[in-house]
Simulated scan of single mutants.
Amino acid sequence: MSSPNFIDYVKFCSRSGHGGAGCLHFHREKFVQKGGPDGGNGGRGGHVILRGDSQHWTLLHLKYRKHVIASNGNPGEEQDRTGADGKDEIIQVPLGTVARDAETGHIRCEITEDGQEFILTPGGRGGKGNAYFATPTHQAPQYAQPGEAGVEEWVILELKLLADVGLVGFPNAGKSTLLSVVSAAKPKIADYPFTTLTPNLGVVPYRDDRSFVMADIPGIIEGAAEGRGLGIRFLRHIERNSLLLFLVPADARDIKTEYDILLNELRKYNPELLDKKRLLAISKSDMLDEELKTEIRRELPTDLPTLFISSITQQGITELKDLIWRHLH
């Protein structure tokens, strides 16, 4: 997943098709003076439909598509022929996509499975032809229904990555380095803050051909929930993770304080995130001796599983995988 091509937010105008008008017609045939009504119904307008596609990873293909317009239904015809339905407009979206009403912010749907479909903007109903209105007491109706108008609305699509483990930490905590070591992902790594500007996904192989998915999101700083740094733009990618792995570097001034700040930012963004399982990994631990590790352990919460790891020397990486797997299953 390359950084410039990762798009997780799009806004577009969705317009469904108008329904076709019903037909007003009476049967005409040689030697038949007064044929009965035979006007057919109009076809429905095309829907705008979201469909989950596991082969898509971003919303890049929708970035420059500002209008999605479905076709109109065809009008009914004589001899009780129903007009053809308008062609549906199907939008393929990655799994984890959430659709919102652009005006109210109301969540319309969440696409989480491959092939899952949701009618985002329904097409207008086709009008009834005059044959529909014929009754024993009213055998020659002189009217038919017009088709129902389609719907035009602005919609926001947001992508929330589907991953088992989400990495949470300050910039330069070693999240991208860890992901590159435990998986085949190749995120950008450099010695300056905010190297990671877009989320990265990696499949982490485990014992007996098992695996789990890990997501690295851009670093959080204090005040992110109020918009500082990269703000809350990428915090939504944590919402679908089963497990949160907090990464705090061993050279931090106060490891417990940094952990508390990260926890507080998640609380301010969405208190429900605190209900997720949490692990704490002290990265860059190759610079610590046993005495320093013992002192650090005394300051950390006793109910939080903690490991000392080093992505460079592979210290604690196997134990981290085991711990993650136990908490996931």
Rank of each mutant, 00 (worst) to 15 (best):
S2K: 09
P4W: 03
G17Y: 11
H18Y: 03
C23Y: 02
L24F: 02
K30H: 04
D38W: 09
N41V: 00
N41I: 00
N41Q: 08
V48Y: 03
L50K: 01
R51F: 03
G52F: 05
Q55A: 13
L59M: 07
L60I: 04
L62I: 08
L62A: 01
L62N: 01
R65L: 08
K66N: 03
A70C: 12
N72R: 06
N74D: 04
P75Y: 10
P75V: 05
T82C: 09
G86S: 04
D88S: 05
I91K: 00
P94Y: 12
G96R: 01
A99R: 11
R100E: 08
R100V: 03
A102M: 04
E103I: 13
T104L: 07
T104V: 12
H106N: 07
I111K: 10
D114F: 05
E117F: 03
G124Y: 08
R125A: 12
R125Y: 11
G126S: 13
G127T: 03
K128G: 00
N130A: 06
A134V: 14
A134N: 02
P136C: 06
P141G: 12
P141T: 12
P141K: 13
Y143R: 14
P146N: 10
G150N: 14
V151H: 10
V155N: 03
E158D: 08
L161K: 10
V168K: 13
A173Y: 07
G174W: 09
L178D: 02
K186W: 11
P193E: 12
P193D: 10
P193F: 09
T195F: 02
V204G: 07
P205E: 14
S211M: 10
F212D: 07
I217F: 12
G219H: 13
I221L: 09
E222C: 10
G229V: 02
G231W: 08
F234W: 14
L235K: 10
R240E: 11
R240K: 14
N241I: 04
S242T: 06
L244Y: 08
F246Q: 10
L247P: 09
P249W: 06
P249I: 04
I255G: 01
K256M: 07
K256T: 10
T257I: 01
T257F: 13
E258L: 05
D260Q: 14
I261E: 08
L263C: 11
K276W: 01
K276E: 00
S285V: 01
D289N: 15
D289I: 10
D289Q: 07
E290V: 01
E290P: 02
I296Y: 12
R298Q: 15
E299K: 15
E299I: 03
L300F: 14
D303H: 15
L304K: 14
P305R: 05
T306G: 06
T306R: 04
I309P: 11
S311D: 09
I312G: 02
Q315P: 06
G316P: 14
E319L: 13
E319K: 15
L320G: 09
D322P: 11
D322K: 15
D322R: 15
I324K: 02
